[in-house]
Amino acid sequence: MNEVENPYLPKIAILDRVVDEIKDVRTFYWHFEDQNEQLKFKNFLPGQFAQISVFGIGEFPASLPPSPTEEETFFTIRTVGSCTDAFHKMKAGEKFAVRGPYGNGFKMDSYAGKNLIFVAGGIGLIPLRSCIIYALENRQKYERIQIFYGSRTPAELMYTNDLKKWGQSAGIECYLTVDRATDGWKGNVGVVGSLFKKPNVQMAIKNSIAFVCGPPVMFRFVIKDLLEMGFNEEDIVSTLERYMKCGIGKCGHCCIGSAYVCVDGPVFTYKQIKKLGEDI
């Protein structure tokens, strides 16, 4: 069977180091044992995902937070179930396995010449980080880049090093907000949508693509705000999460409406999401 490519066969990966992000969320830097696999994998697109194997526990899908333009490969994972719990217990030097990349990814090239508006809530920044870094690496391709990011508390803001950089760089507008101000937070307090109409914010609406990722409640409200502000449904893009076993359109778990999220998604426009007819 080995001469035919086996799409279910994961490739051995080695964990390099683990960094705590926020409560229950860690970033795992890793590389493939086989250098060729690493090179093949590095062709991924922002918005794609991979299947991570923790042998004996199982396999789970995870977004790819790095941009393909970055050197290192890493996952940012929240503990939510048996696989992610087991993954969190892994230490640098230990082995696991990865398959992928899978899914359609964001069509970053087709957004050239447009304003990119990133709206993220909580760990919704994980898949969007890839696009943001990619867009910054290809800065001349895009018009304005605006980031709106909110979390429950200041301690739950992710990727703080990146946020600091984005806050200080010219050519990016990065706005942060928290639901509850603690730890001497001096920034905005309120949901992500509350940032859109702040006097210091000039939101780009015409010729813009809005990337929206976050918890379902946030998603619903942000969509409502964006539509009211004049965004087209096809100019709002997001990624869907579903229970998945294979990642290659066979196991059937992620099938909604006329799409298999793993191969037809996980990136969909809001117009498509509405048609699929299931909760985000």
Partner: peptide, 13 residues
Amino acid sequence: YLGNAYRDCYYEA
């Protein structure tokens, strides 16, 4: 199993 983007090698065998 054999007609979409990925071929299921177990089925195919």
